[in-house]
Design a protein around this nucleic acid. Structure first.
Lengths: 336, 336
DNA sequence: CTGTTAGCGCTTTCAG
DNA sequence: CTGAAAGCGCTAACAG
């Protein structure tokens, strides 16, 4: 009934269980013949080594815990893909948990990971507050943060160069001839929103345009799409509204697009739009969205590689990845 | 250095480790005083019980393995949310792995889950072929399939009533006055695509319309969006093209929308469109998409509950969930 | 090359 | 109510 163990195989093969253990792990300390015999036997008996028993003795489970704020977020999904691929390749499995930015849940997730003796933890797009740091500290394993929103932590990280990316986006708009450019930010992800705003300002200033404070709006909805919708209304209510808008991210841009459709504003004819992230759907909005691509998959992949390195005591450095501007159809020169 | 164990606590408390074990698990066999003392000590010493050690002895790991074809699929993401929520609530953790419909990878994923001694397995939107069944059989734990594309398997399942959902969608179109209605199917998910086609036909026939075979197209791209684009071209090339299209899923509909935009066809003015799934983005396409909602989150949630029931030897029955028609703005009466 | 012996951290009889 | 002992399935010295 219960799964066959090395002991069962040992008995069947007439050897000790440690010989079986060695044979199965291709130790050179076993004669080729017995090794072959044992392997065949294991196969026949349907043996599957117990990772939990192994984990208990080696004190390495070959698992990592991944905590995300939302599983359904398309950005996060791509990152997860990268993490999972890298993990799978290295023989690691990944536990997935969503924190939903609910403090109690965050606590219980990390606590659970700790109990499961994961070898490392990866946290994506953390919106978390003060609660987190101590928790992550107590877990005693490598923790790498992806696009952390909590400045100055002690952990390792892979992050997007938000400032640079934003600057590219806005520069593109300026090259097209826009001068009044709005920015719809995000209050829930302060660090990145600030950085993107900084890039936005830098681009404007580099071209001798001094950013009007009213061009920068920060709706407070929890949903990005909503933020975009409201942000657009805010911006269009200005005496002389922007001819182009740089959005915190693609979902925000989609909200803007949506509102434009409702209000009969044509994009890009009446208004140019740039997003951020390049989530999959950005290529299929109407019109297809010009945006700054974050190498999401790679970021996840690298984060996983980083915990692997950390686990082997290799020196690791935080990585800062660069975005790339993806020009599609949501921008054109201003017609006013 | 190594984490504190019950032995350490036992030593500190001057009791045996089994007493500590009992106390920590709130056994009534321990006096309230010592129980309290032990708990306080555990807390102070930063004790975290080892789920792996516990798993070894109890032969229950309180984990489930979830295999998906693609992590980045928005449909799958919602299902995962449901699974994870239900799991979390029951004190379970979930391993996530993507098969990418690559046979070797599927094998290695299931094999790994088995080695990890997961208590159950959930498989979503399996496109898998013959390879799978034997593997799932060998794993010896409850397996529940969500929207399985492999008819007649021995495992438990939660599935969408595709036929019924499709019929609702097409019926809606007919009510609006459409008579020539196209269907863009999906060759890669045969079971559900067939079922949706059956619902489509049933709706037409119920209204005395005999479906023209040319109205049903099955582009063979791997990407749903592409299928939609090509499907539209195919349908519009017909002598008297449909005035409405029912799409296999929302991503397909998005492809159609995209192509319509390129070709200058207005939706819903010139063409009505219905999708399937109701993925998050469907509410934000232009125009917002009328579609059939699959209760994705609930399906995942129920799948997890099903493995929980199976684990406790409760009787379980396969579940067939019903969709609901979500009317948005992509349909109107035909203008021709 | 192979077997014996411990022991990973915990639960669980079985005796007190 | 508490302790002693065994054992989950495996790895890792340590002897042969």
């Amino acid at each position: 009934m219960s799964p066959v163990s090395i002991k069962d195989i040992a008995r069947a093969a007439g050897v000790s269980h440690s010989t079986v253990s060695r044979a199965l792990r291709d130790s050179p300390l076993v004669s080729p013949e017995t090794k072959a015999r044992i392997k065949r036997l294991a196969e026949e008996m349907g043996y599957s080594p117990s990772a939990v028993a192994r984990g208990l003795v080696t004190r390495r489970t070959r698992t990592v815990g991944m905590v995300v704020t939302s599983i359904a977020d398309p950005f996060v999904a791509e990152v997860m893909r990268g993490v999972e691929d890298a993990a799978h390749q290295a023989g690691y499995s990944v536990f997935l948990s969503s924190s939903r930015a609910i403090p109690e849940r965050e606590i219980s997730v990390v606590r659970t990971f700790r109990q499961r003796r994961v070898d490392g933890v990866i946290v994506t797009a953390s919106r978390v507050g003060s609660l987190y740091a101590p928790l992550l500290e107590e877990i005693q394993v490598p923790v790498v943060l992806i696009n952390n929103q909590q400045p100055g932590t002690y952990t390792y990280s892979v992050s997007m160069d938000d400032r640079e990316g934003a600057q590219m986006a806005v520069d593109h708009l300026i090259q097209l001839g826009h001068r009044r450019i709005g920015y719809i930010g995000c209050v829930h992800r302060e660090a990145s929103s600030q950085a993107r705003e900084a890039g936005y300002r830098a681009a404007l200033e580099a071209h001798g345009i001094s950013p009007d404070p009213r061009w920068m709006v920060y709706p407070t909805e929890t949903e990005d799409v909503q933020n975009g919708q409201i942000g657009l209304d805010l911006l269009l209510a200005l005496p002389s509204p922007p001819t182009a808008i740089f959005c915190y991210n693609d979902m925000t841009a989609i909200g803007v697009l949506q509102r434009c459709y409702r209000r009969g504003i044509r994009v890009p004819d009446d208004l140019s739009l740039v997003g951020f992230d390049d989530i999959a759907i950005a290529a299929y909005t109407i019109p297809p969205l010009t945006t700054v691509r974050q190498p999401k998959y790679e970021m996840g992949y690298q984060a996983m590689e980083m915990v692997l390195d950390l686990l082997e005591d290799h020196p690791v450095e935080d990585v800062l990845v660069q975005g790339t501007l993806i020009v599609r159809d949501s921008c054109q020169p201003p017609n006013t």
